[in-house]
Write a protein that binds this DNA or RNA. Structure first.
Lengths: 118, 118
DNA sequence: TATCTACATATAGCCAGCCTACATGTAGAC
DNA sequence: GTCTACATGTAGGCTGGCTATATGTAGATA
């Protein structure tokens, strides 16, 4: 997965994973890996700063917890974040439709042209 | 359309538009606008540098032409570029499947949970 | 004549954000 | 005592899409 491709979609991914239940950073990374069938192995250097950014904006809130002698910062979706996620989802749908449409349109036209000419 | 979202997908778009026929920069911008139903209005400051980059890599070749007193630099897909486009297309399909899958999975689970609980 | 719009290309420099690389520490297995 | 998994974090790099600007032609319109 080309890192650049994730630009602008990371937020949706993170908020989405937190939609069901609060999770800490490490668990979020594992959840993304699992839910993507192993395709999305996001480095900690991406996730932790992104979570802080999302908290700063107000889409997430966090609190510390100690589980089994380990400290975790657990992130939770705020109302604002939940609302924002809806927007991200529809933005994604439009994005995928537009890009996919342009890419497919060309392929279809080319094969149609080849069929017509050949 | 959030600019950041285009990161890493611009190349595929440009190569795709040039698949059928050679075009000059301005025409490429118009083609993207048209083929996306008006959604993709890419600024010249994005397209021209990107075309030069793609030519430098070897995916495109260009030549100058004068049409109606105006100078145009016409870009054409090279064999290498055509091959690369195939890769871009399958990369896009995987990307869209993965991201879309994660986003949809969450939405589905949440509504399933809501249905189950309420 | 001047001005405006569409056509057409180009570059400098900004900036967001994802990444690599590294630092730090605990728990449990071996 | 060493290794791996768990867990969080930051500094700094890099890339590439963007804004803003410069330059110039052609044709319409006032």
């Amino acid at each position: 997965m080309n890192p650049d491709a994730l630009r602008g979609h990371m937020d949706a991914l993170l908020l989405s994973v937190l939609e069901r239940e609060p999770l800490h950073g490490y668990a979020i990374i594992e959840a993304l890996l699992e839910r993507s069938g192993g395709a999305l192995n996001v480095p900690t250097g991406t996730v932790y700063p992104a979570l802080r950014r999302l908290e700063r904006i107000g889409y997430l809130s966090s609190e510390w917890a100690t589980v089994g002698g380990r400290k975790r910062r657990t992130y939770r979706l705020t109302d604002s974040g939940r609302k924002h996620l809806e927007g991200e989802r529809s933005a994604w749908r439009e994005f995928a439709t537009v890009i996919g449409g342009v890419l497919r349109a060309e392929a279809a036209e080319v094969s149609a042209a080849r069929a017509a000419n050949g």
